[in-house]
Design a protein around this nucleic acid. Structure first.
Lengths: 169, 169
DNA sequence: TAAGATTGATATATCAATCTTC
DNA sequence: GAAGATTGATATATCAATCTTA
């Protein structure tokens, strides 16, 4: 496994190895978490986070746009996702009485029961896959590093655009 | 943003914050890299890695199963992916003359040209998003941490199954 | 039979356009 | 008009079943 730049190397050896390790985790970890949740609770990683986020909100309620920001997902993705969850009876859609432009997702009894049932297994997976083998100082540095990368992406990354309407194209 | 365990907390505060940061990167970084490549070279992150891996092999050739292991993807995913690349003239499929069970993917001239053109932009994105803001010791620790997580997943994670054929279900 | 690969159906994500309410 | 949301078309991923060759 080398750098994949077609021969040219703009990362030095140490950077390259670090990047390969990070790259592996990027591909492996979401898949592993998805599988655990899908197998044990029939929901995806992202669905779990949406349901769990709702479970911690007053009335089990949040706007779709809030959920989109929270999960770093596009609004359209959340809208489709909520539609699926609604079809399964786990959430309800309700226009915000205050301002009709917003749509609230509201957790149902079934939805709450599902998150509660799913949480222990998920947290255990996170602990097992991420934390169990990391010592204190490594964790602290990991935290820093991740924050650094996250903010680099926010600053000059090609994140999804802030939901524009083009109107003329 | 809290732990999303429906009230119960099995991660302490420090772990929780670390997990949130990692979680963000898991969602943001692949998307950012995908976008850069898609915008500048019309290929996905995974497609890039497959083409680039081929570009570094003798004859630009590798077995599909090798590519699957290399990219941590399921074989079926690679097969579909190679089919798409083949349709675009970037690779060719060729049964292994040595052992007909294997299929080789062979990089074409066009494929090689595309990787070469795409590489600088991709490497620059990796540098900008991952490395520019990390100092030496942080990188070293990041490397360790990622290796730890990757091996934890390999050992007791729910990775994709090693390609069984059920035959009776 | 087993390993590698392919295929087709289904699920989910992405993109662009549109719709609604303020 | 602008922000939030929805929709439908397309792209890609996942899953289970099948096919091929050794």
């Amino acid at each position: 496994v080398t750098l994949y730049t077609g021969g040219m190397t703009w990362l030095n050896d140490e950077e390259l190895q670090t990047w390969q390790a990070l790259h592996s985790v990027l591909l492996l970890l979401p898949t592993a978490l998805d599988r655990q949740l899908q197998r044990d609770s029939k929901i995806s990683y992202l669905e779990y986070y949406v349901l769990a986020a709702l479970s911690e909100r007053p009335e089990g309620t949040a706007r779709l746009s809030y959920l989109a920001v929270l999960t770093n997902a596009e609004l359209s993705r959340i809208s489709h996702l909520i539609a699926r969850l609604e079809k399964r009876g786990l959430v309800q859609r309700r226009p915000d009485p205050t301002d009709g432009r917003y749509t609230n997702a509201v957790l149902t009894e079934e939805g709450l029961a599902l998150v509660r049932a799913a949480a222990p297994g998920h947290v255990e997976a996170v602990r097992r896959l991420v934390f169990d083998d990391l010592d204190e100082p490594t964790r602290r540095t990991l935290h820093q590093a991740m924050n650094g990368i996250a903010s680099a992406i926010c600053e000059h990354g090609d994140g999804h655009p802030p939901a524009r309407s083009p109107k003329n194209a």
